[in-house]
Amino acid sequence: HALTKELVEQYDVIKIEDLKAKNLLKNHKLARAIANQSWRKLRFQLAYKCEWYGKQLVIVNPRKTSQICSSCGFDDGKHTLNVR
């Protein structure tokens, strides 16, 4: 609660990726860490607190977000994991 309140008070627009936790759990090296993070709860808290404070929460489709430049839109293809 403290983290989401701080984020909402500090920023007028918050953008988060609409990640599919089910797909992330297929990575056996990271599955336990991902499962313990409560992403759905964080997103839910951000949503209602943004509404309370009159802020904007934008849910971004995660498709190609690590490949397309957010400034100019240039798509330079697949990247290795250390770049993503």
Rank of each mutant, 00 (worst) to 15 (best):
K49I: 00
K29L: 05
L57H: 06
V8M: 00
I14F: 04
E6G: 02
L3S: 06
L57P: 02
I16R: 10
A35P: 01
S71H: 13
C72H: 05
K64P: 02
I34M: 10
G73T: 09
A35T: 00
K64N: 15
K20H: 12
V13Y: 00
Q56S: 05
Y48N: 07
K41C: 05
Y48F: 14
K26G: 15
L3W: 09
N27F: 03
C72D: 09
T4V: 05
P62H: 05
W52E: 12
E6I: 04
N27V: 01
G73I: 07
N36G: 07
W39Y: 15
E9D: 15
K20Q: 12
Q37N: 14
W52M: 12
E51T: 06
T65G: 07
C69M: 06
V8P: 00
K41F: 10
W52R: 13
Q37R: 15
I34Y: 06
K64V: 03
T4K: 01
Q37M: 10
T4I: 00
A2W: 10
Q56N: 04
L30W: 09
L24A: 09
F74A: 14
I68C: 06
I59W: 08
L7D: 04
Y11S: 05
N82V: 12
D18S: 06
A35C: 00
A33M: 08
R43F: 08
Q10E: 10
L7K: 07
K64H: 13
S38D: 14
K78E: 13
